[in-house]
Design a protein around this nucleic acid. Structure first.
Lengths: 252, 252
DNA sequence: CGTGTTTTTGATCCGCGTCAATTTGGGTGG
DNA sequence: CCACCCAAATTGACGCGGATCAAAAACACG
């Protein structure tokens, strides 16, 4: 990728602290008193609505799980994007559309409001590259998500989802993975374009197949991540899994 | 939106000429001999594969219709994005994934290769803003597409698609719209996450309902675009329709 | 005018949605 | 610590939308 920045470590301007994440680069642009950055706690269900100076307010997830959501006019919800610890959410334009951010689990976020710096930052290449990086990231995830919703069946989508959560938030213990899954079946369904009953049914089959083992309803263990991912014929999702090697391209 | 640039008219560096489009701004960054810009003709089915210097090669659609495609490992195709005359395609990173651009109809594209300028452009705010705009645009479309695939049924998706094509490529004639639809049922199906038989069946029902009238298999007329759009409960799609008013936000 | 391709249409099947009945589990108060 | 309660999850029965397969019709092109 063109503009992938080296993930600098946290810095004094940013209340998000020590993440080696997308956040760090953006936080460099906060002012020197650390103004514009503040920490907020969200309970499950709490929402953040966009304000009117787009692309200048960022929300960095410190802990928990925050979803970017949209709704059809008759109230069906679709989760567009999941944000885990370290992810940066940027409020972008979507005039009039029913669109918001929602904590799926108790979460802590760091709010970074660079509105006051807007004029300066529009001419700042480093900031613009970080912003582009953010959008680029979302586009890649979005493409993988589109394939899942358009061309994979329920079982494939759910296996892909579990594998994704494992890669993004799981703790590796030897050959196994331990993953916390702090969202309801309903939330999972709204991410995968299914309904919660179907998710529940599929989950049962996945357990029976021995692909995952649930310790509680919100924590599971993966014996072989490879075996799980073999169920997911999504080339773009695989791409997201191993983000170390140099990138090839995708048509924007 | 933060960085929406005024759509400057075409300029001498760009073979794409007189589009009042996203293209124009990018073309400013071509070198003064107009190098890096060349016109190519594509037949239906012709493909463009990404090369290895991402985000520095652009393809501007002059005429025709070009799809951004991806494929599952077992060969199911999903169209991620449709690009009509005036749209700019940027090859971005998607390591290893089966991912390409494909002309759905005979098309002319203008290739703009800024690879040689990469070092300079990484520090150029205007270029970076244009790049971000491009990504932002795609993200908005992508979000509307995700809602369609995740939460709308076949009829709603197809009506939404026809309305989208009408808005993007249709010619207005008084109260009516005349729209050229130069893609196969298969292509439409791959865009909407359906199969071609289903698209055909739904199309029949849409004709019977009097929402559109087909002059040939690839050209149709819309008597009342409003009536068509009333079938589509997709708030994000509506947002894309009326791009004149100032934007609100969407969570990136 | 004939031939291959795309589209349409019909018959049938299956995955997923819907609705309802249980079960599970976490939280609270006695 | 146990009994109770409520919300979430599971499971079953059933129906529908869309996939599949096959045949017929429409169309494109030489």
């Amino acid at each position: 990728m063109l503009n992938r920045l080296p993930t600098a470590k946290g810095n004094i301007f940013c209340a998000c602290g020590a993440f080696g994440c997308q956040c760090a680069e953006l936080c460099r642009f906060g002012d020197s008193q650390g103004l514009g950055a503040s920490v907020r706690s969200l309970a499950r269900g709490d929402r953040i609505y966009p304000s009117d100076q787009p692309c200048m307010r960022f929300h960095v997830v410190r802990t928990g799980l925050v979803a970017t959501c949209a709704m059809t006019l008759d109230g069906r919800r679709q989760i567009l994007c999941l944000n885990v610890a370290g992810d940066v959410i940027c409020a972008m334009s979507a005039k009039g559309a029913e669109c918001w951010c929602e904590a799926l689990a108790p979460s802590e976020i760091c709010e970074l409001d660079l509105t006051s710096q807007a004029a300066r930052l529009r001419g700042e290449p480093g900031f613009l590259r970080a912003l582009f990086d953010l959008a680029h990231d979302r586009l890649e995830r979005s493409a993988a998500h589109l394939i899942a919703l358009g061309r994979l069946d329920g079982m494939e989508r759910l296996c892909g989802f579990l594998a994704e959560m494992t890669r993004r938030t799981g703790r590796r213990i030897g050959q196994r993975w331990l993953v916390c899954l702090p969202m309801s079946r309903e939330d999972i369904a709204d991410y995968l374009g299914l309904n919660s009953d179907t998710v529940s049914r599929l989950m049962t089959r996945i357990k029976q197949a021995g692909l995952v083992r649930f310790l509680s309803v919100s924590e599971f263990e993966v014996a072989s991540l490879e075996r799980l991912e073999d169920r997911v014929p999504n080339s773009l999702a695989r791409h997201l899994s191993d983000c170390e090697q140099p990138d090839e391209e995708l048509m924007l």
